[in-house]
Design a protein around this nucleic acid. Structure first.
Lengths: 213, 213
DNA sequence: ATAATATTGTGAAATTAATCACGACTTATT
DNA sequence: AATAAGTCGTGATTAATTTCACAATATTAT
């Protein structure tokens, strides 16, 4: 649809901006400057202005940005109007945390179904999301779902990934420590909790107390 | 200790390399090339060589890297010999997932204690980690713990953060959707689950199927 | 009206990171 | 031995991202 002119770094910050604009809107604020927003989201104000500028001139000089207008703009840009269906695979603690998280609230992303191998869990619901047996994966997703959240043990990862790829998945949010192998047309984002913690500890020990993310 | 010559992008990849080297070692492999490692961790081989090169010449031309040697080297570099104590704040589903995660296995990071406001949970243990009441935060941490994992509701975030800062925390791994405000000497890493999911969805819709992370 | 203040949008510069590409050296093969 | 194949380490290049800094413009105060 859109061209890919927008830098990836910018694209990653958009959801963040969106949420904070929503907050402001709910608080009844009608205008905001890049400086204020900067303090809230902890991103340099020049970076924010640059990010916004990729979408055109959204603000007014000497005034700032109109919250409602900006919000409307982002809603369109982030495809907030069109609901994206997601499947969650692996209903352990981490998976359960996701099921309780109400993505619909601001995001228009909906976890439609969850899968697990535990027959105790199968047939129940968490946060309104039905849990099916992992064997029914392809059958239940039935081309309705193009995005999967992977919260399963590392040992299961390769097998499930192969099935998802075969099925025709478009994107995977991978929380397992395994680095998965997929064809080029499947987009994978990794979030590795252990690595995040280790990385924080490493930075603490090796980097002087100052600026850095 | 070390100078901060190492690029941040490199530093963030170190824990990942470390884990995969550990895997290889356990599989009995004694040598590995940057190309093989590249396929395993999904990082360009030139980037891996460059990353390693910041620590000196760790490999041998025409041969690759000795797994055991490299592992020993990283163990020192990542301070694996010295245990880092961590406190987890908020024993919900996400917090519980962390408590079950055995960070000690490869990482020498240990969650020593957890805190929650729920008196049902207080006094129990999860994964061998004792759960105390949130009111006892400062008392129990008592300068033993310098790193905190924040898995509490957004509404509690500012209050708890203020207490952590007052206490003298050095680093915070923040899983709440709130962006916290801390003095310069406190390092914060944010992991925002909703943003990660939204960002994946955005990339799927707006970026042609190809390369990009 | 006028002056003072605030704030955008962006060219240019700076910084940071990724990638290319190849000489040097190691190992394996004939 | 000699040759072929493999692989590192890195200078140079390219790409991506951030930040500076300021003209242009809007708002607010007097």
């Amino acid at each position: 649809m859109d061209k890919n002119k927008i830098p990836q770094a910018t694209a990653k910050r958009l959801p963040l901006y969106y949420r904070f604009l929503n907050n402001l809107n709910q608080q009844g604020k009608s205008r905001v400057s890049s400086k204020e927003l900067s303090e809230a989201v902890k991103v340099d104000s020049a970076t924010i202005r640059r990010d916004f500028s990729y979408f055109g001139a959204l603000g007014k000089k000497g005034y700032g940005y109109n919250v409602e207008y900006l919000l409307g703009f982002f809603r369109k840009t982030l495809d907030q109007d069109e609901v994206t269906d997601v499947a969650l695979i692996g209903v352990g603690n981490l998976g359960t945390a996701f099921l309780h998280y109400n993505f619909m609230k601001n995001n228009n992303i909906k976890i439609r179904m969850a899968f697990d191998a535990d027959t105790e869990k199968v047939g129940t619901e968490i946060g309104g999301v039905p849990i099916y047996h992992i064997e029914e994966l392809e059958e239940k997703m039935m081309n309705e779902v193009k995005v999967a959240i992977l919260t399963i043990p590392a040992s299961e990862t390769d097998g499930i990934t192969a099935r998802l790829v075969e099925y025709g998945i478009a994107g995977i949010l991978n929380f397992t420590p395994a680095r998965i192998t997929v064809p080029d047309h499947v987009r994978v984002h990794h979030i590795d909790l252990a690595v995040e913690l280790q990385s924080l500890v490493y930075f603490l020990k090796h980097y002087p107390l100052d600026t850095a993310e």
